[in-house]
Structure formats: C-alpha cells, structure tokens
C-alpha cells in the first residue's frame, strides 16, 4: 500500500517510492542517501506531529510534515 510519509506513525517502516519535494530538498536528501528504494522508519514525532524523526541508513533526520507529504512510500 502506498502512503505519503507524513502518515507514517512512530515505529512504522516504509520503502521510499517517489520524492516530489522541491529540487533543493530532493538534492539534500540524496546527499544523505535518501532516494527511491531507501528503507525508512519513523522514530518519533514532535508534540503536534509537525516534524517527524525519520531514520534510514543508520542516521536520523528531522523533516517537516509539509515536506513529508510530498514523499511517497510503500509500507
């Protein structure tokens, strides 16, 4: 099932399918090794779920909800 990553709740895993964010962010994510095919997990979210901590390849990144909403993943 495909979802956007802002819907990924803490503890859930997904595989990145498509990244439709702004080019700047897409390139940044690529520098971190965050590309289609990467396995990601949501570690925890900020109190109002505006920022999620996404772990992949052994590191954890904080990303905003509005950016995650433009990234599609497969559960």
């Amino acid at each position: 099932m495909e979802i956007t990553l802002d819907q990924l709740r803490p503890g859930m895993d997904a595989s990145v399918v498509r990244i439709d964010t702004k080019e700047v962010l897409r390139r940044r994510l690529k520098d971190f090794g965050f590309v289609p095919g990467t396995l990601v997990r949501c570690c925890y979210r900020s109190p109002r779920a505006d920022v999620s901590a996404i772990s992949f390849r052994g590191s954890v990144l904080a990303l905003r909800r509005r950016d995650l909403a433009r990234i599609t993943g497969r559960l």
Binding site: L25, R28, L61, A62, L63, D67
Partner: peptide, 11 residues
C-alpha cells in the same frame, strides 16, 4: 526567499 528545513538528529 526560499526555505527548506532538514536537520540531522545525532544519537
């Protein structure tokens, strides 16, 4: 001006 937010959370 443009804006993005991305931050590493080290252990």
């Amino acid at each position: 001006q443009d804006s993005t937010f991305l931050m590493e959370l080290p252990p």
